[in-house]
Write a protein that binds this DNA or RNA. Structure first.
Lengths: 209, 209, 209, 209
DNA sequence: GATGAATGAGAATTCATTCAT
DNA sequence: CATGAATGAATTCTCATTCAT
């Protein structure tokens, strides 16, 4: 019984991901989502406060999952560099595997005033925290420069990933996102300046068609 | 006299920037914008096809201006590094000086399906082109590493700037955006790896409150 | 219970007949019709696509009824003359009994582009078919001249009835429409030429005030 | 100078006939008519009170012309039968020659509340008077039966012509309207009953394709 | 007279949400 | 818990008309 409810809640959530991704948040009708989930419109309101809550719940539920999985995987790595690479590749792979979710996260979610303004600190902050921890860890173990401005660096990493995924979504998801891991790591690690450090193993490759 | 039309169009555009920034796109009423501009509601439709066109026009008109000004300023610099720093500092300073415009660009504009989906390639692409040209120029003059993946790097730079400004906007614009120029340039230039290159002159400073 | 829907749909339809007749199609507000029917404005759109659909539905629903009833009554008559007279008298009596419906049919309906242009062939055509069948039947049983151009005659009969009812509506429905049956039948039967046939039983009487 | 004005007024009127016929009254924009006439929107209001006045003026101006021409032609005929035939053939030929005008008269004009309700007695009444005079003249000279109900007969004739033309307009004006003159005269003259009178010279022919 | 930019009143329609069953 | 028919608030956009030039 308890599962049945969870089941229905999840079915609605999955339906919403699909409909939001294909129609856009403001063009999606609640009745359409209900139909896709195989329930009556009114039933949606037994599980979610309103349409926006549905959108934000998608973020929270999926992000929670991402946070646990990513943290677990990241922590298994020994040094800062590997940890960062682990995060970058999981970030890119995760979205490549779930295009509807990517569309929701990168496009639709931004159309929610509540999300954009209140920023629903919770799970997103936990993700940023994970990045920050990786950076600090890497500083500690000597992988990264010690004088790095952590908060700013976090933005650089997250901002770049976010921008890269957004661009991929908006370009029609036509190219291989995962293959950008290596080049990105190179940039993160070595910067664009003419330092002496060697490029990453993948070499500097652009993944676009 | 000849300017009257342009004047009215601009007045409506300025009013829209203000209202959109304070109320959000979907909560802004066209009649409100008209009132703020000192014209009748119907007049808005003499100059703009609809409410969304108004939002997108804000982007196009202002972005056009930005593109010319930035390009001109950037081109005066000698080397790639200075050019990039010029762009970064103008980007941050520009938004810090016009908070309403920043809110429109970073938050409201993303709520337009047309903008997010069709991406209104024009002026935004020209901005990305400018970044790309800077990178290529820097590669040519020896400022930057020669094997850089240009397209990806463009995303890194733009994505980071965009994320940094978005975060500033959504945090309430409380801290000094311009002061992030130095640290960002350091990151861009040297990466996070333990290369031999020296940090930027500003030193690694976080600008948050 | 099962009738509730039909009931509500019919209540809206009846309300529309009344409001359209009194205010005219373009001056009637949907909310007014909803109020008259005792439902919310939005409810009208559960049953009808839009305001015009409401108008055309009036025609279709009522005309369907008319077509069945008239056909049944007509078919009970033996000869062509009686059948024609039956149709004429029912046509006139029907409108005299339902002045609001008459106003809708003769005046408001013509204000619908969709009705005037697409002519909603369905039920009107069935009415014209009935007239044509009567004429053909009368030709067969020797009531009418055998060389009659059927299609044209159909227009003469329908056109005359339509014009007579329209004139009655637009004059304020002040005189007795039914009493025109006899004179009309006389004209239809004998024409205006100086044939030898005797006038109808009612004699040649005009019913106007 | 006086002609110039008349010229401009007429140009607007002609433009309105064309636009109304092609777009329908309610879908025609005053600015469109102005454009078609080569004047500014405001100019229309120097010559006509409003959009509806434009439509009704079309009727009045053109009808005035029709009334004079028809009366003159009809009066040249000797007997009632010839007079009626003259009117019928001119009515059909007139509309066949000016399809845009036919569309205005038969379809658009009916969409004017003022026309349908107030019925703009003037010129239409003069047309009905002409028909009545023909009937009365025919009664006097022995062409028609003497006991005819004149008013009703007028409706029969006008109603039939009107319906015949309306049907032609709404069917796409594909067949020859003028060729219906003979058959119609036969019906008017001899009715549909099996009287002894001979059919008209044209014989009973339907003009449809 | 002519213009055409500006006006602003006005209503159809949508769809998230509710609640009686 | 589930339903889905009914609600009704709320806002864009149109376009006939005006009037300063």
């Amino acid at each position: 019984m308890r599962l049945k409810n969870g089941d229905k809640r999840l079915r609605i959530l999955d339906a919403a991901v699909k409909v939001f991704a294909h129609k856009g948040f403001f063009n999606s009708k609640v009745s359409q989502i209900a139909g896709e989930a195989g329930v009556a419109p009114g039933t949606v309101y037994l599980y979610f406060k309103n349409k926006e809550d549905l959108l934000i719940s998608i973020f929270e539920v999926r992000m929670q999952d991402i946070n646990s999985k990513f943290r677990e995987a990241v922590m298994e790595k020994e040094d800062g560099g590997s940890r960062l690479e682990c995060l970058v590749s999981m970030h890119l792979a995760g979205f490549q595997r779930q295009p509807d979710l990517a569309a929701c996260f990168q496009v639709e979610l931004r159309q929610s005033n509540r999300f954009m303004r209140e920023n629903v600190k919770g799970e997103l902050q936990r993700y940023l925290d994970l990045i920050r921890e990786i950076v600090e860890y890497g500083r500690g173990d000597g992988s990264f420069r010690s004088e790095l401005p952590v908060r700013l660096l976090t933005h650089l990493i997250f901002g770049t990933l976010d921008e890269v995924v957004s661009t991929w979504v908006m370009s029609g998801m036509k190219y291989n996102l995962i293959s950008l891991t290596g080049p990105l790591m190179d940039l993160f690690t070595n910067g664009i300046g003419k330092g002496v450090s060697a490029p990453g193993p993948d070499g500097p490759v652009g993944g676009r068609p």
